[in-house]
């Protein structure tokens, strides 16, 4: 009996940037859904030929074998479907609508616009929302939480004053497998995040 040795599948390569909130969202989702990824940190501002090809809008980018895709929305879509772990997919139409509503707000106000007063207004709203519910769109984890997580990793804002966001952030870290142990600091998730600027 001869069996062909199954070719080991290459790991998914994820190109991320330290200042790019979507990069942290993609890393979080990969860790949450236990998808094996290799993260390569790139600097879109370094001035190399390679960096000229990538812009902040194209990151994170992903290569899985012959398939390549860029931009946060399609990358998260891909990472949310592949693998065997359950998808983050609200069943109820109202939760789904709220998820999209908050994603749109977080992306526009926290990720793109650089107006502190607008950011503070939204963070206050999200903090209130998290006082009532476990997660942003209700009592289940949605992609809106993953988007906010990305923002918290690059935020220079003082998030300490948002008590409920602080509690929620701890909860988010505890959702990543094997991170809520004593050796959490050595976990794969932290290794992936080690080059981020906010310690």
């Amino acid at each position: 009996m001869f069996f062909k040795k199954k070719k080991e599948k290459d790991k998914i390569k994820l190109y991320c940037a330290a200042e790019n909130p979507g990069s942290y969202s993609a890393i979080f989702l990969s860790s949450y859904r236990q998808i094996d990824i290799d993260v390569e940190w790139v600097d879109p501002a370094e001035g190399s030929e390679y960096s000229a090809l990538i812009g902040t809008n194209t990151l994170p980018s992903l290569i899985d074998g012959k398939f390549a895709i860029c931009r946060i929305f399609p990358v998260l879509t891909y990472l949310n479907i592949i693998g065997s772990k359950p998808k983050i997919e609200p069943r109820k139409a109202r939760i789904l609508a709220k998820e999209k509503y908050y994603i749109s707000l977080i992306e526009k106000v926290l990720w793109v616009i650089n107006i502190d007063s607008e950011k503070e207004k939204l963070l206050f709203l999200l903090d209130q929302q998290l006082e009532k519910y476990k997660f942003i769109a209700g009592d289940e984890l949605t992609l809106a939480d993953i988007y906010l997580f990305g923002f918290t990793m690059i935020s220079n804002n003082d998030l300490v004053k948002y008590k409920n966001i602080g509690v929620w952030l701890k909860k988010m870290f505890s959702l990543v497998p094997n991170q809520n142990t004593e050796s959490m600091i050595d976990g794969e998730f932290y290794k992936l995040l080690k080059e981020r600027k906010i310690a």
Partner: peptide, 15 residues
Amino acid sequence: FIISGSEAIVAFIDA
């Protein structure tokens, strides 16, 4: 239930 924004409305109607 009231929701605003096209992304949210389209997702809601689709579901």
